[in-house]
């Protein structure tokens, strides 16, 4: 019997081997190597050296002003973007599910931003955010003040937030939409019999029923927003400027890893710290929603 079990396990692993090989080489290996790097001072260019420095890289973070700014910017971004995009996604999904005429058409239109590559989106938005660009013209037309969206440190991060909410909300909208189709009509009927109006139905039936999906959407949103990189990279041409206002943690990691020489170890330590922050944020979120049914 035992032998048979072994053989079966062996066949199983043999069949798994291509996947395992890829996982080990491209995911688990790099993770272990990054942890190794985080505890070393690394010089890759010229003569490659690895010098063990213990927790020095982590200690350095506490005195690094730019790391603090980057973390602050990222947290600000997460705190504003995640609730906004979740609510927008829910509202969009609910309107599309209400049985309006032409909802298929709107479903496609709403989803289009998600299909565009984020680099292209950013470039298009940079045109629109330009001082003489579309957005300022619109603001001017309705009598609102205009901004130097790209150059003014006070508004640069907000400009990225607006763009990102607009482009990621539709993705989560589709997830909500799928979940909405799942809510049994009988619940709404029962609510109607009890005399609930449309808003009450939404608030007491739809929202509670969607809680597991909301939990998923928030976790994915948290992970995605903590990793903000490409938009701020393109906006600031890699510098995180103006005045560090678009500097995010991942952009800082990139700068230490590839721009300054000999700080690969510190960059790995920062990445490690970011992973822990995301882990904590996710755990906190789960504690809040108390929803463990799905994952």
């Amino acid at each position: 019997m035992r032998k048979k079990a072994w053989r079966e396990a062996g066949t199983g692993y043999l069949l798994l081997s291509p996947t395992l090989f890829v996982l080990l080489l491209f995911i688990i290996g790099p993770i272990l190597f990054a942890i190794f790097l985080a505890f070393h001072k690394v010089q890759l260019l010229g003569t490659t050296t690895f010098e063990f420095v213990g927790f020095d890289n982590f200690k350095r973070m506490t005195g690094d002003l730019r790391a603090k700014i980057a973390l602050w910017n990222t947290v600000k971004y997460v705190v504003l973007v995640v609730p906004c995009q979740t609510m927008l996604a829910l509202v969009l999904a609910a309107t599309l599910n209400a049985g309006l005429k032409g909802q298929k058409f709107f479903r496609i239109v709403y989803f289009l931003p998600t299909l565009t590559s984020s680099a292209v989106l950013t470039l298009i938005f940079m045109w629109m955010y330009n001082q003489n660009g579309l957005i300022n013209h619109l603001l001017q037309a309705v009598g609102l003040p205009t901004y130097n969206w790209l150059g003014d440190p006070k508004v640069a991060l907000n400009a990225i937030m607006v763009m990102n909410i607009w482009s990621t909300a539709p993705f989560f909208m589709v997830i909500y939409l799928a979940a909405l189709q799942d809510i049994p009509d009988s619940l709404y009927e029962a609510a109607e019999l009890d005399g609930a109006n449309a808003i009450q139905k939404f608030w007491y039936v739809t929202v509670p029923y969607l809680r597991p999906v909301t939990s998923f959407v928030v976790i994915m949103g948290l992970i995605g927003t903590f990793q903000l990189f490409d938009q701020s990279y393109i906006f600031s041409a890699g510098s995180g400027g103006p005045n560090n206002s678009t500097l995010t943690v991942v952009l800082l990691i990139y700068q230490y890893a590839f721009k300054t020489l000999g700080t690969m170890g510190y960059a790995a330590a920062l990445a490690f710290a970011l992973a822990i922050i995301i882990l904590i944020a996710t755990l906190v979120q789960r504690r809040f929603s108390k929803e463990e049914s799905l994952y």
């Binding site: 150059g151 440190p153 006070k154 510098s239 400027g241 103006p242 005045n243 721009k259 300054t260």
Partner: peptide, 19 residues
């Protein structure tokens, strides 16, 4: 100089904009 320049540019802009 690359590090010095990066930090200078980042902060100089805020002074240049009068903030």
């Amino acid at each position: 100089l690359p590090i010095i320049t990066n930090n200078f540019n980042n902060q100089f802009v805020s002074a240049f904009l009068g903030q």
